[in-house]
Design a protein around this nucleic acid. Structure first.
Lengths: 205, 205
DNA sequence: CACCTCCCTAAGCGCTTGCTCACCTCGGGG
DNA sequence: CCCCGAGGTGAGCAAGCGCTTAGGGAGGTG
């Protein structure tokens, strides 16, 4: 109940009201069944409207997916960049990056699921745009890891590979996280921050 | 080219020949576009047959997915159980489990993609069967981690959580691995075996 | 009051989907 | 020589798809 209600916060600046109801309905439906298995009638129905109303606010079903994907990717990228640019040691910054990135994936796991696993359904141009954002995401984490290796705080033989693995681990939270499970987003974030530090070979504590 | 040709080995015991061609065609199509975006005409076409021929060998499109998912899950489970039951220290066994599990996900990433990411499209009964296999998968890895903690070789505060994370990390290889990329399945397996040992807090070497 | 704009709906178009059915082909046994 | 079953095809059905169109009602403005 209402656990996903906070999701409204993510789409607060989508107007008018009907467009926002449509986008949140689409997130739920895409996350549950996947983009291709979701019908425009289903989305409109969840939003309490007739099928045709969808096309007043969005040109196509794909545009709805693109809006979700674009907003989600930018939100995730901001989280990582904020951590990268924060004060503190590389360990502090990596820990904060993983903690907040994982927390977002768990808290908003419906949105995250669509963002991370449905991008293959995007049109060519939209896909290219999103792939560029994902490269930036990778670069943000790699910058932190490189800082740590340079300062001697981290010890890993393969920086790009380890970066990829850390990101992969975080992203996959969206796949398995269940709101009814026993772990809270905060707990998972804490656990994963610790695991990430071990992965990069952080010795201190 | 032909990197996926080895895939024939996974389906060698599917007879007759036409049924095998259909299942490998379906694996390729499902991995590329996803189950719901793949048409029976596409599968039959890749196998060099008319759309109707599919229904001589399989009752529905869903049964085709089930066959793939079932075989794949059993293969993956066998790999982990063999590692769990092998001789050697917990570190040796965890290392071997992750190495071979990851190698399988990379080498057969098309099959693995279908196995790991399309199970939501299964019918209820088939889904339940596959979920049971996945629980066994988790149990196999957890047994190794518990052994390591009991013997004092590993040091992790959260055994189920760390087990989940290690498995999640391995599974996600199927999502990002690209046969044209610069990493070979062997290299990724080696890197990940090392990362997994760090994650469970393995001190020795 | 007339009028315009913004949302919205009912109906439905053209197409594709998973799947079926009547029929064909062909190698092997009586 | 005929028949038969296994494996295949071409045509096509009912249902559901994304999306369009014609039109209606509510609310603000002259």
């Amino acid at each position: 109940m209402g656990a996903e209600g906070q999701q409204g916060g993510q789409w607060a600046d989508v107007t008018p009201d009907a467009a926002r109801r449509l986008v949140t309905a689409a997130v739920e439906a895409f996350a549950e069944r996947g983009y291709h298995a979701t019908t425009t009638r289903d989305i409109a129905g969840r939003a309490g409207m007739s099928p045709a109303a969808l096309y007043i606010h969005y040109k196509t079903k794909e545009e709805l997916l693109y809006r979700i994907s674009s907003v989600g990717h930018r939100l995730a990228l901001d989280i990582l960049r904020r951590a990268r640019d924060s004060a503190g040691s590389p360990a502090d910054r990596l820990s904060e990056a993983v903690r907040s990135f994982v927390r977002w994936h768990a808290e908003h796991h419906t949105t995250a699921r669509v963002v991370q696993y449905e991008l293959g359904a995007l049109g060519e141009e939209h896909y290219a745009e999103v792939v560029a954002l994902r490269r930036d995401t990778d670069a943000a984490v790699r910058a932190i890891v490189e800082d740590g290796v340079a300062s001697g705080d981290f010890g890993t033989p393969d920086v790009p590979g380890t970066t990829l693995a850390v990101l992969s681990l975080c992203i996959d939270v969206a796949r398995w996280f269940n709101a009814e499970g026993k772990r809270t987003p905060d707990e998972v974030g804490e656990l994963y921050a610790d695991l990430a530090l071990r992965m990069v070979g952080y010795a201190g504590k």
